[in-house]
């Protein structure tokens, strides 16, 4: 509520200011032209001489977040905001509500504002050519975060993210260990067509032992609400035939566990491998439901800011950076849970 009041107050002040400084407007109008030229200078200066090393306090970072569809995403948002606050980076943050058109328009707004760096977590791989070209023309480096894009790699500076294919492979290795004698498993996949779902599914199949059969696969859209009915229907259809389940994220795993509980199955009877490593997932490991959780780290704030600063200072950056990720097991879950931040 206080936020709303402050907006109203801002608007009132703004309209007063509008009346007061009509003369000032003329000078301000000239300002954007100067600002526009600035990025080009910034890009050129460090190359010429290391005189002006920028610090975090100079940086304006634009982060057009995709939305808030899962715990992973909210943790990612929190990480970016917290890191920016700690380092003193000016953050321009927006939320696209899972719509690509909103994300694109947010990038355009950032370009017009003349930010120093844009960090973009793309909703899907396609469709970024035009807006990335605009950013390049404006001299603003773009860091692709999390998922990758299909656009030409000359259009962006670097990619920081997880290798979804590798996560799938890791999950398959865990499943191979859990079911050494083979068996039948089910798959609860993420949003149809999303890079994470496709990558994890392909990686999983790539590394899965031949004696393990995937009986069925259905999407749960990465959400709990949809995972429960799908799992319920699965359990009735394949009652007694299933040995394990591969689930594409922890949110769906938590939902699926509810369905499994309701079916009267004891913890550990079904071997579950999930991806993410959220607190909910850890809790489920402690309770014995999940046997292995492949980490997909959302705490990308520090990495993104560090790379952004390097780009501003004209330093060379690794065009393809993978986040540090591991696999968690129930034995260590209890010990690690208090240290989990998401």
């Amino acid at each position: 509520m206080s936020r709303f009041k402050s907006i109203v107050l801002l608007m009132v002040i703004a309209s007063l200011a509008l009346a007061a400084c009509s003369s000032a407007a003329a000078t301000e109008a000239a300002a954007p032209a100067a600002e526009e030229a600035a990025p080009a200078e910034e890009a050129a200066a460090p190359a010429a001489e290391e005189m002006t090393a920028y610090t975090y306090a100079d940086m304006t970072l634009c982060y057009p977040q995709l939305g808030a569809e899962s715990d992973w995403r909210t943790a990612n948002t929190a990480s970016i905001k917290q890191t920016a606050e700690e380092l003193g980076v000016t953050l321009i943050f927006s939320d696209a509500q899972q719509k690509q058109e909103n994300q694109i328009s947010a990038v355009r707004a950032c370009i017009q504002q003349g930010v120093d760096v844009i960090a973009l977590p793309p909703v899907v791989e396609d469709g970024w050519d035009a807006v990335l070209t605009e950013a390049k023309d404006a001299g603003i480096p773009v860091i692709i975060v999390d998922r990758s894009v299909s656009a030409d790699s000359s259009l962006y500076a670097a990619h920081i993210g997880s290798d979804m294919f590798l996560e799938g492979q890791r999950a398959a290795e865990e499943m191979n260990k859990l079911l050494p004698d083979g068996g039948n498993i089910l798959e609860l996949s993420g949003t149809v067509g999303s890079g994470a779902a496709t990558g994890r599914a392909e990686g999983f199949r790539d590394a899965l032992n031949a004696n393990i059969t995937i009986l069925d696969s259905q999407t749960g859209n990465f959400t709990r609400a949809e995972a429960i009915p799908v799992m319920e229907a699965f359990l009735k259809k394949y009652a007694g035939q299933v040995d394990g389940v591969f689930i594409h994220n922890d949110d769906m795993a938590i939902g699926a566990v509810e369905a499994i509980k309701a079916a009267g199955i004891e913890p550990g009877e079904l071997k579950i491998v999930s991806v993410d490593g959220t607190r909910g997932g850890f809790q489920a490991m402690i309770d014995g439901w999940i046997q292995a959780d492949v980490e997909c780290n959302p705490l990308l704030g520090p990495q993104v800011m560090e790379m952004g600063l390097k780009l501003m200072n004209g330093e060379a950056v690794d065009p393809e950076t993978l986040t540090n990720e591991t696999v968690y097991y129930p034995e260590e879950a209890e010990e690690l849970l208090p240290t989990r931040q998401y």
């Binding site: 569809e69 899972q98 709990r224 609400a225």
Partner: peptide, 12 residues
Amino acid sequence: YVHSADANNIGL
């Protein structure tokens, strides 16, 4: 039923 309140997706 789903043990959570997801303002974006619940009751979609």
